[in-house]
Design a binder for these strands. Structure first.
Lengths: 349, 349
DNA sequence: CTGTTAGCGCATTCAA
DNA sequence: TTGAATGCGCTAACAG
């Protein structure tokens, strides 16, 4: 009997085509159909093709929830970012999603908007949705969240920060060292009054690390970051502009500015242009991220290249490996590069 | 008997705390616990609080898959974008996700990278994951996809394009009209040689619409878009730079350039600066999107503001309404605004 | 308002 | 290699 016709009589009442329907049509047991789906090689070739045909003919699509319930895994993974509307995390998300997709996982995303409460809520919801693994940005958060995750017994990674001595697996880079290096470079140029434009520090360990790096460099050079040289604002160009206005109207304006993230640097550069403040002639500007604009803007931005895509991809790979049983080694810290371009130079005489 | 202690004897073997465990502890039937979760008001206050305490004490988290299986809805929705690593779709995704999250839905995303085959694959996977609704960008795609969706009986929206006479619900704006309007403006300035920098047109109905709008305006003014004035490249700054080089080295270079998306315009502006081509003195540049950079770059970009966030939010609202039983009216086309800034002016004499 | 009874669609024992 | 039986954790009738 040839298998054909989409309207092959379904045994089920009406709605859905189930695995049982396929089994009927293919004249095998439901268990066999299940095997065809999960470990095809364990099924006789003849039956296997019969089942395949039946699936085709009926347009059968497995029911994810039923599968998840029976097998205790959903092939879904979660990812919570502080934001998903910018190219920074966008690149990570994209890479994460693509890598997961290639491994036949589906990804659930959410944005915490840098709010720990929202993050916790999203983690809760995702756990409840039955994710098999989870990606989180940064390490610093309520222990309750980690306990929740552990209670569900699923693997997770934190990203965007390396963590040699941390209890949590981390895919990322050493923000502190990178910031220190960049600041060292500024000192080496002859700067001594280096201001810091930072994102909001509370609940943002990456930003805190970077600030720590600056401080370390300061100390190494026998100086100390003056309070009035540290400004903290949400990430955004407008904030960068505002910060530049504030800092340059001080009695002793800095000769260089370290920006914790690129939008702040762009804002600073645009505002400097608007005010006829020469960059780097009068003030040098350096930042973090190496977004697409960095090399296009004038002056071209000196910045730390941060492995955004790699992070997403490596985090995904780590989780995939863990899920498939192999315990991968803890990911090694990723590299950053200081990219020197035009926005930094010697301090004015 | 006071309810307490996290280690209250669980009836289940070991792993998971189930609804039945809660029922035991609270001395009610499983059904009552279920009701507490889904329609609390239908449960006696006393029992309700007892159940709540038990849930707390046990740290109970409902099992999404089991719920989905029994109730035939997963409270997950899918969204497939052509890309998710830029601020354009990022803003939409963010708004979509936030709106969904507020309505207690979880969102699954994927990027098709402008590839129809990948899109189909993602839709398949999402359907299989059991999404309750789906968001897709644009209308033009294989009918097979629409049939797949219909077979699953779930609601969907298309976005980024309005569709008065289309068979599919759409949340978006009229790309053609907006492009026509922008081109009209260019003509009104005195331009007659207007080039078009477009994204890849194949499989991108938004880009096609915009081109059609330009052509319409051309026709209205008694002209015709010359073939050599139309260049097609993937979206990206580098491509914009390349396109500018190409177009300005022609025998009769255009006096204005219509860019189908902002990255192309930025590239064009940067390249023009590099080549000492005055904008808008020698060539005017206009675009679509009104991304954050548009108002910051020099010259400030004349562009069509496109309701990116609104699209995400309205699409989510439409789906939420549909899912909750009310059949919302088909969304009306969203507004766009022509924002005239500095990058456009009269053609050179 | 509450408890009892049945599955939802599938994966997975275990025998054969 | 295959089939029959069982249960994953929950919701949805239905009675009471």
């Amino acid at each position: 009997m040839a298998i054909s016709s989409e309207s092959a009589s379904k045994s089920s009442p009406a709605g859905r085509v189930t695995l049982d329907d396929v089994a009927h049509l293919a004249q095998v047991s439901p268990a066999t159909v299940s095997r065809c789906l999960n470990r095809p090689e364990s099924v006789n070739l003849e039956k296997r093709t019969r089942v395949k045909q039946a699936i085709q003919a009926l347009g059968y699509v497995p029911h994810g929830a039923a599968r998840a319930l029976a097998s205790n895994q959903s092939r879904m993974v979660g990812a919570v970012f502080p934001a998903i509307d910018n190219t920074l995390f966008g690149a990570s998300l994209d890479a994460f999603q693509r890598t997961m997709s290639d491994a036949d996982y589906t990804v659930i995303v959410a944005s915490s908007t840098y709010d720990p409460a929202r993050e916790k809520q999203h983690v809760r919801r995702m756990l409840q949705s039955g994710i098999d693994a989870l990606m989180l940005v940064g390490l610093a958060r309520d222990d309750e969240i980690y306990e929740l995750i552990r209670a569900h017994g699923i693997p997770y990674v934190t990203v965007w920060r390396s963590a040699d001595h941390q209890p949590h697996p981390a895919v990322g880079f050493d923000n502190c060292a990178a910031a220190e290096h960049l600041t060292d470079y500024l000192f080496s140029l002859g700067h001594e009054r280096i201001a810091v434009f930072s994102g909001i520090l509370a609940d943002n360990d990456r930003a805190q690390d970077r600030l720590a790096g600056v401080r370390k460099s300061y100390a190494k050079h026998g100086h100390k970051l003056a309070d009035q040289y540290l400004i903290e604002r949400p990430f955004g160009v407008e904030q960068g502009r505002e910060m530049l206005r504030l800092i340059m109207s001080q009695d002793a304006p800095p000769t260089a500015i370290f920006c914790g993230a690129e939008p702040l640097a762009y804002g600073a550069i645009f505002e400097a242009a608007a005010q006829n403040i020469a960059v780097p002639g009068q003030v040098s500007i350096a930042a973090f991220d190496d977004t697409w604009l960095a090399a296009q803007i004038s002056p071209k931005l000196t910045t730390v290249r941060t492995p955004n895509m790699e992070i997403g991809e490596e985090a995904a790979k780590y989780l995939i490996a863990t899920l498939s049983g192999v315990q991968p080694p803890l990911p090694r810290p990723l590299e950053t590069d200081l990219i020197i371009r035009e926005s930094t130079g010697r301090p004015p005489a």
